[in-house]
Design a protein around this nucleic acid. Structure first.
Length: 486
RNA sequence: GACCCUGUGGUGCAGAGGCCUAGCACAUCACCCUUUCAAGGUGGAGAUCGAGGGUUCGAAUCCCUCCAGGGUCGCCA
């Protein structure tokens, strides 16, 4: 018997849960389940500035929603934990020191400013970018002295010199990298935290990961990882790089061109099994070309080698068609249950009702008044359109302001509640040159389609980030098609 | 710019030298069904398999060159 297969998904909790994470998780999950192995969730939160606990929770929720449950992870524990990298700092530090002792890594005292200047120079001379290895030439005694004197430094990996390096990818076979490409990567930052490269390799080894299945964007750093395994004297796992999901223009999928948050798909009413099915179709196919299948069936027939490498365009139209197929063959009772679970929970209704109670006279009036709380996108009639654009402002100006509102304030906001939304909007009002009055009415109409609504921040809070973002974008599109100077 | 990956209709895939006068699905068009709209059914249009060279009796499938797209070049992951 060979070793049991162990795979992992290793997201970093720096934003909304991403479709790409689900995509890669799915293939890792499928391989592990197919072979009776284990699927592990590890949180890569070594970037202290950007990591956020709210993001971590959303990742858990989203993956569970999709049915991609893990056997070991920060919340369920396991034999080789902890599964959160921020709780493993000492492990990485010890391993980095070990490498330094072996002469496979070295302390580097170059300041960020010097590195920046170096990059500028290299760019100007059209040279390959990368660390020039200055501190590698330091004697061990000098390096040790400067370290004990408390001089700030990082630890860098010594990459082999004057050679090309051949690494292996399950799907691509041998891949040869030329030396100039491979500079001495930082392993340990000056704050004592590891970089992705170190933490990832150390953890994959310690957690006995057998197959590293990750996105293609990592392929370029594979030589560094392989070098790390060699420096430690460890066996390498099997590496497999999945193609990147793409926008319609074939660039790497991004939130400016596509909804990428799993929360969006959940709120928009896509069924988890349909999303999973669709994701599996991105770069993979059943041997018999069947396109509709369950996660279970995927697992039964799964074969990593059947992944195709062209970057698949994430075609929402086809996803929507698939989702419709699933919905149409569901019993009404089941649809009702899904509706309740996903979009129309008592919990949600009980958040909407307090906002509407004082504004309705009959039960029936609720449906007329509160429709926008349940809709996807809202229509803008002529009145709404004029209400959306403040006096003295133009449609294109309004569109621009909404765009920067999304980018500067909405997207980075991970904890979405009335208070946070309010301060974000007030903040934006100050920096944008739009008065609170102008901004708030514009946002109100853009998000609800109406000039009369419950208090704005409560409304945005209850609607949730995904819907607000989506309707704001829709408003931008609408404004852009209007003529100037209205 | 350097390095790496990829390249089958607009999109997602099948195809692993002859079964391909290139198949399926989405989208699109037409028709049928239907009080309507969907859904469903039927059919159509759409690809000289990125291009050019080879290898071979024979290439979408093997080799080379070029081109195009993408990714990476961070004390971010």
């Amino acid at each position: 018997m060979t070793k049991p297969i162990r795979t992992r998904i290793a997201p970093s909790p720096t934003g909304d849960p991403h479709v790409g994470t689900a995509y890669v998780a799915l293939f890792n999950y499928a391989l592990a389940r197919k072979h009776g192995g284990r699927f592990i969730l590890r949180i890569e939160d070594t970037d202290r500035q950007r990591s956020h606990p709210a993001s971590e929770t959303m990742i858990f929720d989203a993956l569970r929603w999709l049915g991609l449950d893990w056997d070991e992870g920060p919340d369920v524990g396991g034999p080789v934990g902890p599964y959160r990298q921020s709780e493993r700092s000492s492990i990485y530090r010890e391993h980095a020191e070990d490498l330094v002792r072996r002469g496979a890594a070295y302390p580097c005292f170059c300041a960020p400013e010097r590195l920046e200047a170096l990059r500028v120079e290299q760019r100007a001379k059209k040279l390959a970018l990368g660390y020039d290895g200055r501190c590698r030439a330091l004697s061990t005694t000098e390096a040790a002295q400067r370290r004990s004197a408390g001089e700030p430094h990082v630890i860098r990996l010594s990459m082999p010199k004057d050679e090309s390096m051949v690494v292996h990818d399950l799907l691509r076979g041998d891949v040869r990298f030329e030396r100039p490409q491979m500079d001495d990567q930082v392993l340990l930052k000056s704050d004592g935290f590891p970089t992705y490269h170190l933490a990832n390799v150390v953890d994959d080894h310690l957690m006995e990961i057998t197959h590293v299945i990750r996105a293609e964007e990592w392929l370029s750093s594979l030589p560094k990882h392989v070098q790390l395994y060699r420096s430690f004297g460890w066996d390498e796992p099997i590496f497999c790089h999945l193609p990147l999901l793409r926008n319609a223009d074939r660039s790497k999928i991004s939130k400016r061109k596509n909804p990428v948050s799993l929360n969006h798909y959940r709120r928009a009413g896509y069924l988890p099994e349909a999303l999973v099915n669709f994701l599996a179709l991105m770069g993979w196919a059943m041997p018999d070309e069947r396109e509709e299948f369950t996660l279970r069936e995927l697992v039964e027939r799964f074969d990593l080698k059947r992944v195709s490498l062209g970057g698949p365009v994430f075609d929402i139209e086809k996803l929507t068609w698939l989702n419709g197929k699933y919905l149409r063959r569901m019993a009404p009772e089941e649809i009702l249950a899904r509706l309740r679970r996903q979009l129309l929970s008592d919990d949600y209704l009980l958040r909407v009702l307090p906002l509407c109670r004082e504004r309705i006279d009959t039960l029936e009036a609720f449906f007329d008044y509160a429709g926008f709380f349940f809709a996807g996108e809202v229509p803008y009639d002529a009145k709404a359109l004029s209400g959306m654009i403040p006096k003295e402002r133009t449609p294109s100006e309004t569109a621009r302001i909404l765009k920067s509102l999304i980018e500067q304030k909405i997207d980075p906001l991970l904890e979405w509640d009335a208070g946070a939304v309010e301060s974000a909007l007030r903040d934006f009002s100050e920096s944008s040159g739009w008065s609170a009055k102008e901004l708030f009415m514009t946002v109100r109409v853009a998000v609800t389609g109406r000039a009369a609504t419950p208090p704005l921040f409560d409304t945005l809070d209850v609607l949730g980030k995904e819907i607000c973002r989506r309707r704001l974008r829709r408003a931008i599109e609408t404004l852009r098609t209007m003529d100037e100077g209205k």
